[in-house]
């Protein structure tokens, strides 16, 4: 009997060793040049986890980032606030194309500096052409803005009510939250870039290489679905500064805008500024015919 038992034990130990060897090889391969741990590799889709599991992950990430950047990191997983649906207004008659929002966004949201990722694209348009994307320039380079006879048209994620990007994701790594923000679980994204093909606004950006943010420039106040450090091979996008707006702050682009062209608020609150704009201004949404129903309103 005893002999038999030891054999069984040995075998199970052997299979266990085999299994763990296999798993660790797999995880090591997966890590290949990055710092993904075994636990992180087998982490499930964040949306499907219960609060305990979420907490463990958050803790692990906070420690990892704190160690990596030498700054105390916080990673929030704060849920949407009830009775809130975020909307954004952009006054195209005010925007001067200074791109302050572009850089404030990159700093707030820890976008990679090299290769450079920007969530906001400002398009320069000739006044005699009107809102004509094909004749617009994203790469304008002027000493002084605004240029005569031109106006500026910043584009970022339009936070569609009917987002084509989330529908196409084969693994459900991106979805629309209750407060209307479209988020990505970076750890679940497989990097197929189907969402980038589906987005009509060029709002999704891919980490073609390992993102690089200098230690002294990193923003340690983060949200799991927002500005926490990303890894190579995953898609990211504007989240209306989810780490800020769910705490009652404005997105950083709204705060930085020197001409007050950017407005933000709760669409469900009849007294909000955004509702005032919808009521009193001439409002348009980009590519209305696609029925994406943006919550990003251009007005003039």
């Amino acid at each position: 009997m005893e002999g038999k038992k030891t054999i069984e034990k040995k075998e199970s130990r052997r299979t266990f060793l085999k299994k763990s060897a296999l798993a660790s090889t797999f995880a090591t391969l997966a890590a290949c040049g990055s710092d993904t741990s075994w636990e992180e590799f087998f982490q499930k889709n964040f949306r499907t986890l219960d609060d305990d599991d979420k907490k463990k992950i958050i803790e692990r990430l906070e420690n990892k980032y704190t160690e990596k950047y030498g700054k105390k990191f916080s990673v929030s997983s704060k849920d949407p606030i009830d009775e809130t649906l975020f909307g954004y207004g952009l006054d195209i008659s005010r925007c001067i194309g200074c791109r302050k929002c572009v850089y404030a966004c990159a700093e707030e949201n820890n976008q990679s500096r090299d290769p450079q990722i920007h969530w906001i694209t400002v398009l320069e348009m000739a006044k005699d052409k009107g809102v004509d994307l094909f004749h617009s320039h994203a790469d304008y380079d002027r000493e002084l803005v605004p240029e005569d006879d031109h106006f500026y048209f910043p584009v970022a994620c339009q936070q569609c009510e009917n987002p084509p990007c989330t529908k196409v994701c084969p693994v459900g790594a991106t979805w629309k939250e209750k407060d209307g923000i479209v988020v990505v679980d970076y750890n679940w994204c497989i990097g197929c870039r189907f969402c980038m093909a589906a987005c009509p606004y060029g709002a999704r950006h891919f980490n073609w290489a390992e993102p690089d943010v200098p230690k002294d420039e990193i923003n340690p106040v983060t949200h799991y679905y927002g500005n926490r450090p990303r890894m190579k091979g995953v898609v990211e996008k504007c989240t209306f500064c989810i780490q800020r707006v769910r705490e009652g702050l404005y997105p950083s682009c709204v705060e930085i805008c020197p001409v007050g062209a950017r407005k933000f608020g709760n669409l469900l609150d009849p007294d909000s500024e955004i509702r005032y704009i919808l009521k009193h201004k001439r409002v348009l949404v980009l590519k209305e015919e696609l029925n994406t129903q943006p919550k990003f309103y251009y007005f003039y």
């Binding site: 797999f26 997966a30 290949c32 679940w188 994204c189 497989i190 990097g191 091979g233």
Partner: peptide, 17 residues
């Protein structure tokens, strides 16, 4: 073409999503 080829297991029904 995948950014994370090792995460392809996320596509396996029931194991992933």
């Amino acid at each position: 073409d995948m950014g994370g080829p090792f995460r392809l297991w996320h596509m396996i029904p029931f194991v992933g999503l």
